[in-house]
Simulated assay, not measured.
Amino acid sequence: MEIVIVGRHTEVADRFRRHVEDKLAKVSQLAPTARRVDVEVTHENNPRLAGVSERVELTVRAKGPVIRAEAAADDRFGALDIALDKLTERLRRSRDRRKDHRRNNGVLTPVDVRPYDAVKASEPQAEPQPEPATLDRPGDAVERQLGDSPVVIRQKLHHAEPMTVDDAVEQMELVGHDFFLFIDKESARPAAVYRRKGWTYGVIELDSKVEGAEPVSDLT
């Protein structure tokens, strides 16, 4: 299993890299098909956010849905521990769900909605890499500042496959988001599922269909 560690607006010391590799060794036990774990370390320079200045994001890419977790703390070692606890819980949940499907003779269709970012572990990370000027391929991302304000808007292009609402809810839980954008397999419309109170969820659909997508009910 490959572990790729990158720094965003920060350097990643060899000591922390070795620590990450040791900590992530147990991922392969919960996800035997995992081919790669992406680790992104981000440093926030704003003094007002000193308590959460170090953010660690973990993304497991395997034969199945992408599973992700992130956390922030005042140091990256603590952020890693919190993110790893979240990731471990989601890996167990995904493993148990696969077992339930096999027992019920169900079919689990893996859907990878996050792009495979081609980042080499050997590349120097001292300087942040320039962002693409346009969003042409899945994985491209751009950042822009809103006028003279401190607001920064980040845009990223993702690959998407049509899926059911149930699959979208599962994907949202596995990546730890409060919302999830997808193409509804039954209606061929762009949609978003979002978390409400407790264990309830909401779904919003747009009134136009995605070009080239066909509703399942219309297929023969």
Rank of each mutant, 00 (worst) to 15 (best):
G198F: 00
K156Y: 06
E173Q: 13
R92V: 14
N104M: 02
L146G: 00
D96F: 02
F182N: 05
D184R: 00
R189Y: 03
A121G: 06
E40G: 06
F179V: 00
E21I: 12
V175Y: 04
P110F: 05
H101S: 13
R195F: 07
P132N: 01
R97F: 13
I5R: 00
P132Y: 09
V107C: 06
A13L: 08
E173H: 09
V152C: 05
V37M: 02
T33W: 04
V107Q: 08
T33D: 12
V203R: 10
K23A: 14
A72F: 06
P110W: 01
P150W: 07
V152S: 03
V60T: 08
H43N: 10
F179P: 01
P128I: 06
E211F: 11
I153M: 14
A72D: 06
V210Y: 05
T88P: 00
R36W: 00
T88Q: 07
V210C: 04
R90K: 15
P128W: 03
L91G: 12
E214M: 03
E40H: 11
R195E: 06
T10F: 01
A71P: 04
I183M: 07
A168R: 04
R90C: 12
H43C: 08
R189G: 07
A69M: 11
D74F: 14
D117W: 07
S94D: 15
E2R: 14
P110V: 03
T220K: 09
Y116A: 12
P150K: 08
E123G: 01
L157Y: 03
A69Q: 05
R90S: 12
R61Q: 12
R76K: 15
G51H: 10
G106Y: 11
P115L: 13
L24C: 00
D22L: 00
N46E: 11
S149K: 05
V56Y: 11
P215K: 02
K23G: 03
Q29G: 08
E170N: 06
L181S: 13
A121Y: 06
R97A: 11
A118N: 14
R195D: 01
R15A: 15
L135E: 10
T134S: 10
V165P: 04
I204G: 01
F77D: 15
H158K: 11
E127L: 13
S217R: 05
V27D: 09
